[in-house]
Amino acid sequence: MVSDFQIFTSLRYDPSLLQVHSNPAFTHANWNYNHASPFYMLDYHRDRMLRAALHWKWESAIESLSGEAGLQLLAESITANLPRKDEPARVRVDVSEDGKLIAVASTILSVPLARLFPTILDPPALDLSSGTVFEVVVDATDNVNPSEFTHYKTSKRQVYDQARKQAGITSPAIAREVLIVDSRDGSVMEGSISTPYFFREGRWVTPLVNKETNKDWHGGQDGTTRRWALERGLALEEVVPVETLVNGEDCWISNGVRGFIFGKVKLSP
């Protein structure tokens, strides 16, 4: 039986990213296996989709995504569907069980490169006018159990869509994110479209995510920017009980389209 869902990822296309490969300020970026590219962490996006294909044993998808050829096919599929090549774009790439890649792109705003490749995660100083501050709220539905469909990013996103609707996030223009909570132990799993980071005991932490070999699922998705932050020591993995969140506390959220964004927790009264 053919699967009734697709693996997907959302990433940023941005011509300014071609500067990263040769800019000494971003030597920490380790850009796309050292290839100059206008795609934000393209290799990490490919890797996460390939891990999902391996999990479900989608042989054709594995073949499409593997090796340098898979990375090149991904880049070509996106490039062929860009509305404009001189402007940044949000790109969603779906991969089906038969290995077919479908890319859909839409224009988005520019952001500073330092927001895509930070060297540290620190709250802004006194002036917050230089960037959007997201309101970070907690999912009120409290009915999510971790599974393969929360660990891997697929088109089965009902729990995320429901949480966003409950939080009043009806448009990407709304500067709000909602935290998904594990109904079993009350820990933060992830954001609905982002990885969250919280300041605990002098360092930044992000919710613990189990490895693919552990079928006792814990946490949410092992996102691209999350992987990047962990590999560079910007944050550590740690279980984050929702009861430890404090109204008004500073946090960060990140994803493969917008990079790293400052936020503040807002708890219901």
Rank of each mutant, 00 (worst) to 15 (best):
L54S: 07
S268H: 09
Q158F: 06
T150D: 06
P24M: 08
K264F: 03
P241M: 12
A125V: 11
Y13N: 03
K264A: 09
A173D: 14
S268I: 06
V2T: 15
V246A: 13
P172D: 11
L11C: 10
E212Q: 14
A29R: 07
E238M: 12
S192P: 14
F26L: 07
V181W: 00
L121H: 06
K266A: 10
V240A: 05
R84V: 04
A235E: 07
G220S: 04
F5K: 13
Y160L: 15
H151V: 06
M1L: 11
Q221C: 14
G256T: 04
N30D: 07
S187N: 15
E87H: 02
R232I: 03
S268P: 05
G233L: 09
L71H: 00
S22I: 01
V246Q: 14
L234Q: 02
K215Q: 14
E59F: 05
D142L: 15
F5R: 12
G219M: 01
E243M: 10
I108M: 02
R115G: 15
A167P: 09
K165D: 10
I120M: 10
L126M: 10
R48K: 13
V133H: 01
V95Q: 02
T244F: 03
T27H: 00
V181P: 09
E201H: 13
S147M: 08
D4E: 14
Q166V: 13
D4W: 03
R90Q: 00
A140F: 00
A140T: 13
